[in-house]
């Protein structure tokens, strides 16, 4: 049963990869990377149970955090065109 699950996860990894490869806009690719991060979390969680050592669940949690931070950074880049300013700097820019 767990083996079947990991086959399905590998299949969905391939689908996310294809959607990243043939996606027309950059936003398709960002979405594909985000989905791929989620699938990786699932993969690591399930793989621990396949090998009979579910100690890797903590690592899956850290992966979820990293994937989230990356998506936030990418979207911030697309919103503002840079990532080096704090919110107070931005307010001053608007005043000028």
């Amino acid at each position: 049963m767990v083996e079947f699950t990991i086959l399905l996860i590998l299949l969905s990894m391939l689908l996310a990869l294809i959607s990243a490869a043939i996606g027309e806009t950059v936003y398709d690719k960002i979405l594909a990377v985000n989905i791929f991060g989620t699938i990786t979390v699932l993969f690591i969680a399930v793989y621990g149970f396949v090998t009979g050592r579910p100690d890797f669940l903590d690592i899956a949690l850290v992966y979820a955090l990293i994937s989230f931070v990356t998506t936030i950074a990418v979207l911030k880049f697309f919103e503002y065109g840079d990532m080096g300013k704090s919110s107070t700097d931005r307010e001053q820019d608007i005043d000028i």
């Binding site: 990243a20 594909a32 990377v33 791929f36 990786t40 994937s67 990356t70």
Partner: peptide
Amino acid sequence: VMLSGIYSLLCAS
């Protein structure tokens, strides 16, 4: 760049 992120996740797996 986005695809290299996927590459890293695959490597990590």
